[in-house]
């Protein structure tokens, strides 16, 4: 957890000159910020582990060590086992598809800067401005007419498409930084386009793959609007909609809702613990558009 979240530099003379009172003030502010950010997680924990009979304040830990009943309720009646499985399928396939289609598209866009290709790049990036809800009506109608509602395929294609603009942009930017010499050498050796792309280009994309995989998989795993309309049956529902439905229909059972929320964020939490620096690199890469 103590790995760095930004490149470091040694303490500057400016910092050393700052007064003791200034330092104290700074750390008080930091403490307030950290407590504010951790509070919702803490309240979800106490809510989730308290039985309905435990009506003490949510600020206090549960009496007698708490209960796992809420987790059992969330798991069974909320069908979170299904939701986790569905979420995993949709996330893995969408992420893989985004990487493949995105990296393929980026190659000509990075290597052949024709007028057409510059226009294609700009048009794809421009899609980031389309709010998903503004295309909801025609998209939903189209999927309904094709009989594709409540199928993984439809959500995977829609979410992959929504992730593509950023992925194509990140791949293109990165490919432009790669030296041409390897690809030229491969061409001289008689390697075709496919071989060059698979053997030379793809392997050198590892760093940007890490960024795209993390950005795409968290976005897809957390996605709510499209997921809740396209996959609305309990059998195929993904995690965010499953957790949210718990909240609405069984609004009085906040304990189970909290348990559902915690189960939903656990996979992300574990990934963050181990891959923190990639997560932050992803956020920064996304910011440079």
């Amino acid at each position: 957890m103590a790995t760095t979240i930004a490149p470091q530099r040694t303490a500057s003379p400016r910092v050393r000159r700052t007064s003791q009172a200034g330092q104290l003030g700074r750390w008080i502010l930091i403490a307030i910020a950290v407590i504010t950010q951790v509070t919702p997680f803490y309240l979800a924990l106490t809510t989730a582990f308290k039985p309905i009979t435990d009506t003490t304040s949510l600020w206090l830990p549960p009496l007698n060590g708490g209960t796992l009943d809420n987790f059992a309720t969330a798991w069974d009646s909320g069908h979170l086992d299904w939701a986790l499985e569905n979420g995993l399928i949709v996330t893995v396939v969408s992420t893989a598809l985004t990487c493949i289609v995105g990296a393929m598209a980026a190659y000509p866009l990075a290597r052949r800067s024709t007028k057409l290709n510059r226009f294609v790049s700009l048009a794809i990036l421009g899609m980031l401005m389309v709010p998903p809800l503004s295309i909801l009506v025609p998209l939903y109608t189209m999927l309904a007419q094709l009989g594709l509602l409540n199928t993984y395929v439809s959500l995977i294609l829609v979410l992959t498409t929504l992730q593509l603009p950023l992925a194509v942009f990140l791949f293109t930017q990165f490919m432009r930084t790669l030296p041409l010499s390897l690809e030229e050498a491969a061409a001289i050796d008689g390697a075709g386009l496919t071989t060059t792309f698979l053997r030379i280009v793809l392997p050198s994309l590892k760093p940007v793959f890490a960024t795209v995989v993390i950005l795409t998989s968290t976005n897809v795993w957390n996605e709510f609007a499209m997921s809740s309309y396209i996959l609305n049956k309990a059998e195929v529902r993904t995690l965010a909609p499953a957790a949210a439905s718990f909240f609405g229909t069984q609004g009085n059972n906040v304990g189970a809702a909290a348990a559902a929320a915690l189960i939903g964020l656990l996979p992300i939490l574990i990934a963050y613990l181990f891959l923190q620096k990639y997560f932050v690199k992803g956020a920064l890469a996304g910011a440079e558009k």
């Binding site: 790995t3 760095t4 309240l43 957390n222 957790a243 909290a258 992300i268």
Partner: peptide, 26 residues
């Protein structure tokens, strides 16, 4: 500082749905 940064950044990764549910308890 690194630890504080990591905690302040954490909610970015959580589904807004889950985050909102957790804030509801507040």
């Amino acid at each position: 500082k690194a630890f504080a940064r990591a905690l302040i950044y954490l909610p970015v990764l959580v589904s807004p749905v889950v985050m909102t549910m957790m804030y509801y308890f507040l």
